[in-house]
Design a protein around this nucleic acid. Structure first.
Lengths: 119, 119
DNA sequence: GCGTTATTTCGATATTTCGTTAAATATTGA
DNA sequence: TCAATATTTAACGAAATATCGAAATAACGC
Protein backbone atom coordinates (compact mmCIF):
# COMPACT_ATOMS: atom_id res chain seq x y z
CA UNK A 1 0.00 0.00 0.00
CA UNK A 2 1.17 3.49 -0.87
CA UNK A 3 0.85 6.44 1.46
CA UNK A 4 -1.73 8.03 -0.81
CA UNK A 5 -3.98 4.99 -0.49
CA UNK A 6 -3.55 4.92 3.26
CA UNK A 7 -4.44 8.59 3.51
CA UNK A 8 -7.64 8.08 1.57
CA UNK A 9 -8.55 5.08 3.70
CA UNK A 10 -7.80 6.84 6.97
CA UNK A 11 -9.69 9.94 5.91
CA UNK A 12 -12.62 7.73 5.02
CA UNK A 13 -12.58 6.18 8.47
CA UNK A 14 -12.17 9.41 10.36
CA UNK A 15 -15.84 10.32 10.21
CA UNK A 16 -18.35 8.90 12.63
CA UNK A 17 -20.98 7.65 10.23
CA UNK A 18 -18.38 6.06 8.00
CA UNK A 19 -16.47 4.49 10.84
CA UNK A 20 -19.68 3.07 12.27
CA UNK A 21 -20.75 1.76 8.89
CA UNK A 22 -17.38 0.17 8.31
CA UNK A 23 -17.34 -1.55 11.68
CA UNK A 24 -20.86 -2.77 11.11
CA UNK A 25 -19.75 -4.31 7.83
CA UNK A 26 -16.58 -5.75 9.33
CA UNK A 27 -18.68 -7.59 11.86
CA UNK A 28 -21.17 -8.65 9.23
CA UNK A 29 -18.68 -10.54 7.12
CA UNK A 30 -18.66 -11.41 3.45
CA UNK A 31 -22.35 -11.07 2.74
CA UNK A 32 -22.51 -7.46 3.85
CA UNK A 33 -25.66 -5.41 4.26
CA UNK A 34 -28.01 -3.52 1.98
CA UNK A 35 -27.58 0.25 2.01
CA UNK A 36 -31.04 0.72 3.46
CA UNK A 37 -30.33 -1.62 6.35
CA UNK A 38 -27.17 0.27 7.19
CA UNK A 39 -29.06 3.55 7.06
CA UNK A 40 -31.69 2.17 9.43
CA UNK A 41 -29.19 0.78 11.90
CA UNK A 42 -27.14 3.95 11.98
CA UNK A 43 -30.18 6.24 11.89
CA UNK A 44 -28.81 8.29 9.03
CA UNK A 45 -30.71 9.79 6.10
CA UNK A 46 -30.36 7.67 2.94
CA UNK A 47 -28.79 10.49 0.98
CA UNK A 48 -26.24 11.11 3.67
CA UNK A 49 -25.38 7.46 3.98
CA UNK A 50 -25.05 7.11 0.24
CA UNK A 51 -22.52 9.91 0.27
CA UNK A 52 -20.51 8.18 2.95
CA UNK A 53 -20.68 4.73 1.39
CA UNK A 54 -19.37 6.22 -1.80
CA UNK A 55 -16.46 7.62 0.16
CA UNK A 56 -15.73 4.24 1.75
CA UNK A 57 -15.96 2.61 -1.65
CA UNK A 58 -13.55 5.12 -3.15
CA UNK A 59 -11.16 4.27 -0.32
CA UNK A 60 -11.43 0.59 -1.23
CA UNK A 61 -12.66 -0.24 2.25
CA UNK A 62 -16.04 -1.54 1.17
CA UNK A 63 -17.31 -3.13 -2.01
CA UNK A 64 -20.80 -2.62 -3.39
CA UNK A 65 -22.75 -5.45 -5.00
CA UNK A 66 -26.06 -5.00 -6.77
CA UNK A 67 -28.76 -7.52 -5.99
CA UNK A 68 -32.05 -6.70 -7.56
CA UNK A 69 -32.96 -3.25 -6.37
CA UNK A 70 -30.76 -3.54 -3.32
CA UNK A 71 -27.12 -2.62 -3.16
CA UNK A 72 -25.18 -4.70 -0.69
CA UNK A 73 -22.02 -3.33 0.79
CA UNK A 74 -19.38 -5.59 2.27
CA UNK A 75 -16.12 -4.78 4.02
CA UNK A 76 -12.99 -5.23 1.90
CA UNK A 77 -10.96 -7.31 4.32
CA UNK A 78 -7.83 -7.34 2.21
CA UNK A 79 -7.74 -3.59 2.10
CA UNK A 80 -8.40 -3.38 5.81
CA UNK A 81 -5.50 -5.65 6.45
CA UNK A 82 -3.20 -3.77 4.12
CA UNK A 83 -4.00 -0.62 6.01
CA UNK A 84 -3.16 -2.17 9.37
CA UNK A 85 0.07 -3.49 7.94
CA UNK A 86 0.93 -0.09 6.55
CA UNK A 87 0.47 1.51 9.95
CA UNK A 88 2.71 -0.97 11.71
CA UNK A 89 5.31 -1.18 8.98
CA UNK A 90 8.86 -1.35 10.32
CA UNK A 91 7.48 -1.18 13.83
CA UNK A 92 10.21 -0.83 16.44
CA UNK A 93 13.05 -1.42 14.01
CA UNK A 94 14.94 1.09 16.08
CA UNK A 95 14.51 -1.11 19.16
CA UNK A 96 15.82 -4.23 17.50
CA UNK A 97 12.51 -5.34 16.06
CA UNK A 98 11.03 -7.39 18.88
CA UNK A 99 7.62 -5.86 18.36
CA UNK A 100 5.28 -8.82 18.65
CA UNK A 101 1.88 -7.32 17.82
CA UNK A 102 3.00 -5.52 14.72
CA UNK A 103 4.91 -8.53 13.51
CA UNK A 104 1.74 -10.56 13.52
CA UNK A 105 0.02 -8.10 11.29
CA UNK A 106 3.02 -7.49 9.11
CA UNK A 107 3.88 -11.07 8.46
CA UNK A 108 0.52 -11.98 7.02
CA UNK A 109 0.36 -8.81 4.97
CA UNK A 110 3.54 -9.71 3.15
CA UNK A 111 2.19 -12.92 1.73
CA UNK A 112 -1.44 -13.99 2.10
CA UNK A 113 -1.45 -17.74 2.77
CA UNK A 114 -3.02 -19.41 -0.23
CA UNK A 115 -5.25 -22.33 0.87
CA UNK A 116 -3.19 -25.35 0.00
CA UNK A 117 -5.12 -27.61 -2.38
CA UNK A 118 -4.14 -31.18 -1.50
CA UNK A 119 -2.95 -31.90 -5.05
CA UNK B 1 -11.36 2.23 23.06
CA UNK B 2 -14.44 4.32 22.43
CA UNK B 3 -15.52 5.46 19.00
CA UNK B 4 -14.75 9.08 19.89
CA UNK B 5 -11.13 8.17 20.63
CA UNK B 6 -10.85 6.18 17.44
CA UNK B 7 -12.22 9.08 15.42
CA UNK B 8 -9.67 11.47 16.85
CA UNK B 9 -6.86 9.00 16.19
CA UNK B 10 -7.98 8.29 12.64
CA UNK B 11 -8.42 11.97 11.88
CA UNK B 12 -4.94 12.56 13.22
CA UNK B 13 -3.54 9.93 10.89
CA UNK B 14 -5.44 11.05 7.82
CA UNK B 15 -3.06 13.86 6.97
CA UNK B 16 0.14 13.27 5.08
CA UNK B 17 2.59 15.04 7.37
CA UNK B 18 1.08 13.45 10.45
CA UNK B 19 0.93 9.99 8.95
CA UNK B 20 4.54 10.26 7.84
CA UNK B 21 5.63 11.50 11.24
CA UNK B 22 3.78 8.73 12.99
CA UNK B 23 5.28 6.03 10.79
CA UNK B 24 8.70 7.50 11.30
CA UNK B 25 8.21 7.29 15.05
CA UNK B 26 6.74 3.80 14.85
CA UNK B 27 9.89 2.64 13.14
CA UNK B 28 12.07 4.56 15.54
CA UNK B 29 10.87 2.77 18.64
CA UNK B 30 10.74 3.83 22.26
CA UNK B 31 13.37 6.51 22.15
CA UNK B 32 11.58 8.56 19.55
CA UNK B 33 12.98 11.60 17.78
CA UNK B 34 13.37 15.27 18.57
CA UNK B 35 10.84 17.56 16.91
CA UNK B 36 13.55 19.25 14.90
CA UNK B 37 14.83 15.97 13.53
CA UNK B 38 11.35 15.01 12.43
CA UNK B 39 10.91 18.39 10.77
CA UNK B 40 14.19 17.94 8.90
CA UNK B 41 13.41 14.44 7.75
CA UNK B 42 9.95 15.32 6.55
CA UNK B 43 11.03 18.68 5.15
CA UNK B 44 8.30 20.54 6.94
CA UNK B 45 8.47 23.97 8.56
CA UNK B 46 8.90 23.72 12.33
CA UNK B 47 5.68 25.58 13.06
CA UNK B 48 3.74 23.34 10.74
CA UNK B 49 5.22 20.22 12.27
CA UNK B 50 4.53 21.47 15.76
CA UNK B 51 0.89 21.90 14.83
CA UNK B 52 0.74 18.34 13.58
CA UNK B 53 2.63 16.83 16.49
CA UNK B 54 0.19 18.50 18.81
CA UNK B 55 -2.62 16.87 16.90
CA UNK B 56 -0.97 13.46 17.16
CA UNK B 57 -0.39 14.02 20.86
CA UNK B 58 -4.00 14.99 21.41
CA UNK B 59 -4.97 11.76 19.69
CA UNK B 60 -2.75 9.84 22.08
CA UNK B 61 -0.72 8.41 19.23
CA UNK B 62 2.56 9.99 20.24
CA UNK B 63 3.98 11.09 23.56
CA UNK B 64 6.26 14.10 24.02
CA UNK B 65 9.18 14.06 26.40
CA UNK B 66 11.26 17.08 27.24
CA UNK B 67 15.02 16.62 27.29
CA UNK B 68 16.96 19.78 27.75
CA UNK B 69 15.85 22.10 25.03
CA UNK B 70 14.74 19.26 22.81
CA UNK B 71 11.33 17.69 22.82
CA UNK B 72 11.39 14.05 21.90
CA UNK B 73 8.31 12.45 20.46
CA UNK B 74 7.74 8.70 20.56
CA UNK B 75 4.96 6.57 19.17
CA UNK B 76 2.39 5.38 21.70
CA UNK B 77 2.35 1.71 20.82
CA UNK B 78 -0.46 0.81 23.18
CA UNK B 79 -2.73 3.36 21.60
CA UNK B 80 -1.73 2.21 18.14
CA UNK B 81 -2.65 -1.31 19.05
CA UNK B 82 -5.93 -0.31 20.62
CA UNK B 83 -6.83 1.45 17.41
CA UNK B 84 -6.08 -1.60 15.28
CA UNK B 85 -8.11 -3.73 17.64
CA UNK B 86 -10.99 -1.29 17.46
CA UNK B 87 -11.03 -1.46 13.69
CA UNK B 88 -11.09 -5.24 13.60
CA UNK B 89 -13.47 -5.68 16.51
CA UNK B 90 -15.99 -8.44 15.95
CA UNK B 91 -14.45 -9.10 12.58
CA UNK B 92 -16.44 -11.62 10.55
CA UNK B 93 -18.70 -12.60 13.41
CA UNK B 94 -21.37 -12.92 10.74
CA UNK B 95 -19.27 -15.55 8.94
CA UNK B 96 -18.78 -17.71 11.98
CA UNK B 97 -15.70 -15.94 13.21
CA UNK B 98 -12.95 -17.70 11.29
CA UNK B 99 -11.23 -14.44 10.54
CA UNK B 100 -7.60 -15.24 11.17
CA UNK B 101 -5.87 -11.89 10.70
CA UNK B 102 -8.28 -9.93 12.84
CA UNK B 103 -8.29 -12.59 15.50
CA UNK B 104 -4.57 -12.14 15.96
CA UNK B 105 -4.99 -8.47 16.60
CA UNK B 106 -8.16 -8.84 18.61
CA UNK B 107 -6.99 -11.59 20.87
CA UNK B 108 -3.97 -9.71 22.01
CA UNK B 109 -5.94 -6.53 22.49
CA UNK B 110 -8.42 -8.23 24.76
CA UNK B 111 -5.83 -9.76 27.00
CA UNK B 112 -2.15 -9.18 26.41
CA UNK B 113 -0.48 -12.59 26.72
CA UNK B 114 1.66 -12.44 29.79
CA UNK B 115 4.93 -14.24 29.12
CA UNK B 116 4.47 -17.58 30.78
CA UNK B 117 7.04 -17.99 33.50
CA UNK B 118 7.91 -21.68 33.56
CA UNK B 119 6.91 -21.81 37.19
C1' DG C 1 -47.20 0.55 -18.29
C1' DC C 2 -47.60 2.16 -13.46
C1' DG C 3 -47.02 2.77 -8.69
C1' DT C 4 -43.78 1.44 -5.15
C1' DT C 5 -39.40 0.79 -3.18
C1' DA C 6 -34.22 1.40 -3.03
C1' DT C 7 -30.54 4.21 -3.84
C1' DT C 8 -27.97 7.99 -5.79
C1' DT C 9 -27.14 12.74 -7.50
C1' DC C 10 -27.55 17.70 -7.11
C1' DG C 11 -27.40 22.25 -5.00
C1' DA C 12 -26.87 25.18 -1.12
C1' DT C 13 -24.97 26.29 3.31
C1' DA C 14 -22.21 25.84 7.43
C1' DT C 15 -18.18 24.13 9.45
C1' DT C 16 -13.57 22.44 9.78
C1' DT C 17 -8.84 22.04 8.49
C1' DC C 18 -4.17 23.29 6.47
C1' DG C 19 -0.18 26.02 5.77
C1' DT C 20 2.30 30.27 6.29
C1' DT C 21 4.37 34.21 8.61
C1' DA C 22 5.50 36.52 12.66
C1' DA C 23 5.91 36.62 17.36
C1' DA C 24 6.44 34.28 21.83
C1' DT C 25 8.45 30.92 25.11
C1' DA C 26 12.06 28.07 27.00
C1' DT C 27 16.67 26.20 27.43
C1' DT C 28 21.63 26.29 26.93
C1' DG C 29 26.27 28.06 27.39
C1' DA C 30 29.51 31.86 27.31
C1' DT D 1 22.73 38.62 31.40
C1' DC D 2 22.98 38.01 26.42
C1' DA D 3 22.86 35.61 22.16
C1' DA D 4 21.67 31.37 19.96
C1' DT D 5 18.92 27.31 19.39
C1' DA D 6 14.53 24.60 19.76
C1' DT D 7 9.80 24.61 19.84
C1' DT D 8 5.16 26.46 20.30
C1' DT D 9 1.37 29.84 19.74
C1' DA D 10 -1.51 33.14 17.18
C1' DA D 11 -3.88 34.97 13.22
C1' DC D 12 -5.44 34.72 8.68
C1' DG D 13 -7.05 33.23 4.00
C1' DA D 14 -7.88 29.26 1.06
C1' DA D 15 -9.60 24.83 0.40
C1' DA D 16 -12.04 20.71 1.66
C1' DT D 17 -15.98 18.38 3.92
C1' DA D 18 -20.67 17.31 6.11
C1' DT D 19 -25.46 17.73 6.09
C1' DC D 20 -30.04 18.18 4.29
C1' DG D 21 -34.10 18.25 1.08
C1' DA D 22 -35.59 17.59 -3.48
C1' DA D 23 -35.20 15.47 -7.66
C1' DA D 24 -33.41 11.68 -10.58
C1' DT D 25 -32.44 6.84 -11.64
C1' DA D 26 -33.28 1.96 -11.40
C1' DA D 27 -35.68 -2.38 -10.41
C1' DC D 28 -39.64 -4.91 -8.83
C1' DG D 29 -44.49 -6.77 -8.96
C1' DC D 30 -49.11 -6.18 -10.43
Amino acid sequence: MQIADALIALAALSQETRLSAFRLLVAEGRQGLAAGVIADRLRVAPATLSFHLKELTRAGLVVPRQEGRFVYYAAAFDQMHDLLAFLTDNCCVGDGGDCAPAALVRRRAARPPRPRTTA
